[in-house]
């Protein structure tokens, strides 16, 4: 192969490289829009405590005392695997997954119930507010 052909080979390989790079950038751009899409799927809800908010980032959110729970509540009155939040059609449901102290939604003991905006969820001694997502600087 002469040097011109070698340069042509390198140019073809570079075009492929650039294409792969562009597709990676496309994937990163799509990440942002899929996050917005998720907010729509999850009805843009979050859980809030006195001084903390918890994002509901996937369709099954485990709440418990254990270090690797999705929402960790380090309180002895909360079971290690206390409750599971699930979403379908933009409707969130909370389910007891074998906790000791149970789940109270608006003061009523429940095994499984659909959540509405501004419901108060009591897990052990912890009270969580199920509400619409707010900006970071709005309390």
């Amino acid at each position: 192969m002469n040097s011109l052909n070698l340069i042509l080979c390198a140019v073809a390989a570079a075009a492929l490289d650039i294409c792969i790079l562009v597709l990676i950038l496309t994937a990163y751009r799509e990440k942002k829009s899929s996050r917005i899409n998720w907010h729509r799927v999850s009805n843009d809800m979050e859980l809030a405590e006195q001084d903390k908010t918890y994002e509901l980032g996937c369709d099954e959110v485990l709440i418990g005392r254990h270090a690797s729970a999705d929402i960790r509540l380090p309180d002895l009155s909360v079971s290690r695997y206390h409750a599971m939040l699930t979403v379908a059609d933009g409707v969130w449901t909370i389910k007891d997954i074998g906790s000791k102290s149970g789940i109270f939604v608006n003061g009523e003991l429940t095994r499984e119930t659909v959540l509405h905006e501004n419901d108060i969820i009591k897990l052990g001694n912890r009270r969580l507010l199920f509400r619409k997502r707010r900006d970071g600087n709005v309390r």
């Binding site: 140019v11 597709l23 950038l25 496309t26 829009s33």
Partner: peptide, 28 residues
Amino acid sequence: YANPVAYVFSCFFVLIAHSAMLCNIFFN
């Protein structure tokens, strides 16, 4: 689709990559 610009660019660069390979066949 929320990213029409990314869509157009991706289509364009895929075509460029394939065309470059075809040029390589033509010359080499």
